[in-house]
Each structure stands twice: as structure tokens, then as C-alpha cells.
């Protein structure tokens, strides 16, 4: 081929079966979804069996493990709860991620019907579908994700760059400087000496950090 002639002639052509094995990604428009289907109640059983130990019986999350349901209308509050229902813009991502990377520690073991059913159950747990819903390639685009319009493309060039560029202040930049917060009062750094303890002026709970650093 011409591509080969122009290139180095390295590598070999990928076979259809190889591409099918590795290219399992699903696009927002449903491209990439396999044949299959699953309903809410089948999903509940699969979820109880394979997911609930970490994500809870109702997808509400156990301990520090991710919550998959709930958190509606919390995005503009302190410590928003970002779940499939409250935050995720596309259903494709849920299907794709579960199919490819869950259960945690035992990924790529689910059949398409199991994934369809599990996703149907997660939608139900988020009050997005009714309990008689059956998810398939055909019904996939019928689902309306509550936060589908919640995202916008990086606008830092317009909203930040202009005000944070140019020659900065070097002298007399502030009249007064006061310490407003000290990390030692939280005392959440590993190995930090006991002497550096709280004097009661804790300004925030360590838990807020746990929530913000799910990643």
C-alpha cells in the first residue's frame, strides 16, 4: 500500500479479531455497543452479587468506595456528590467503564447482558428509569442523563489568562498580611509530630479532603 511505501514498513496489519478483542470502547451515540439487553431486576441480582460489597445494595457506596447513585442537586454546594445520576453526562461512559474495568480486581469478566442489566439497575437506583426498563442497543439513546448539559469546554484562556498576565506587583502589594489557616491544626499529614496538634481552631474537617481527592 502507499502508506507502507511512505513509511518504514514496520509493524503488521491488525486482524479483525484482534481489533474486536481490544477495541471495546463505546461512544456517546452508542457506537460500539454489542448485541444484548438487560432489565432492572436482573441487574439488581447481578449488582448484589458482584458490586454491592463496595458500592452498596442501592449503589449508594460503602465507606470510602464510590457512590454510584444519589447526590442530585449537590453540584453547586460544598462537597458535591458526583454520581452517575447527579454528574455523569453520557450513559455510554457507564456501560463502557463497567464493561472494561469493573468489578475492581476482576475486570473484563462480565457478559454484555450482565452489563446491560447492571447499567439498567444503576439508572433505576438514580430514579432515571422505571423498574420495568429494559436496556439494549435500541433503548440506549432513550435514556436522558440529568447532567448531560452540565459541562463546558475549557475556557481558561477567556476567563483567566487575561486577568492573570502582564507585569505583576513587586512593591507595596498589600497593606497587611494575616495567616488565615494553618495545616498543623488539621493534623492529617502522615508522620507529623504529635506536638503539632490542634488548638481547637480547626477550620475544616479532614473529611472534606477525602471527598475532594477521590482521585
Amino acid at each position: 500500500t502507499s502508506a507502507q511505501a511512505e513509511g518504514f514498513g514496520l509493524g503488521r496489519e491488525a486482524l479483525p479479531k484482534e481489533i474486536a478483542a481490544w477495541d471495546v470502547s463505546v461512544r456517546p451515540d452508542g457506537t460500539g455497543l454489542p448485541e444484548g439487553s438487560g432489565d432492572v431486576w436482573t441487574g439488581e441480582e447481578v449488582f448484589a452479587d458482584k458490586c454491592a460489597v463496595c458500592h452498596g445494595d442501592f449503589a449508594e457506596g460503602v465507606g470510602n468506595w464510590p457512590k454510584l447513585a444519589g447526590g442530585w442537586d449537590t453540584l453547586d454546594r460544598k462537597d458535591p456528590v458526583k454520581t452517575v445520576g447527579s454528574y455523569w453526562p453520557y450513559l455510554s461512559t457507564t456501560w463502557d467503564y463497567i464493561n472494561r474495568s469493573m468489578p475492581f480486581g476482576d475486570a473484563q469478566t462480565l457478559e454484555p447482558d450482565e452489563v446491560y442489566a447492571m447499567v439498567a439497575y444503576i439508572l433505576y437506583s438514580n430514579d432515571i428509569v422505571d423498574d420495568d426498563f429494559v436496556l439494549s442497543k435500541d433503548t440506549f439513546l432513550d435514556v436522558e442523563m440529568p447532567n448531560a448539559d452540565g459541562f463546558f469546554v475549557d475556557d481558561r484562556d477567556e476567563t483567566e489568562y487575561a486577568q492573570w498576565s502582564g507585569e505583576p506587583c513587586m512593591e507595596n502589594c498589600k497593606d497587611n498580611v494575616e495567616v488565615t489557616m494553618r495545616a498543623v491544626f488539621l493534623d492529617v499529614t502522615p508522620g507529623v509530630d504529635e506536638a503539632a496538634t490542634s488548638d481547637g481552631q480547626i477550620t475544616d474537617e479532614p473529611a472534606q479532603a477525602a471527598a475532594t481527592t477521590e482521585d
Binding site: L75, D76, R77, K82, G150, F151, F152, V153, D154
Partner: peptide, 12 residues
């Protein structure tokens, strides 16, 4: 996530 609850994406 921004103040109003909307979120920037592709902040590369």
C-alpha cells in the same frame, strides 16, 4: 466543577 455546579471539561 465550578461555583454554579457546571463543570469544565477537557482542561488539558
Amino acid at each position: 466543577v465550578m461555583k454554579d455546579g457546571s463543570a469544565r471539561k477537557w482542561t488539558w
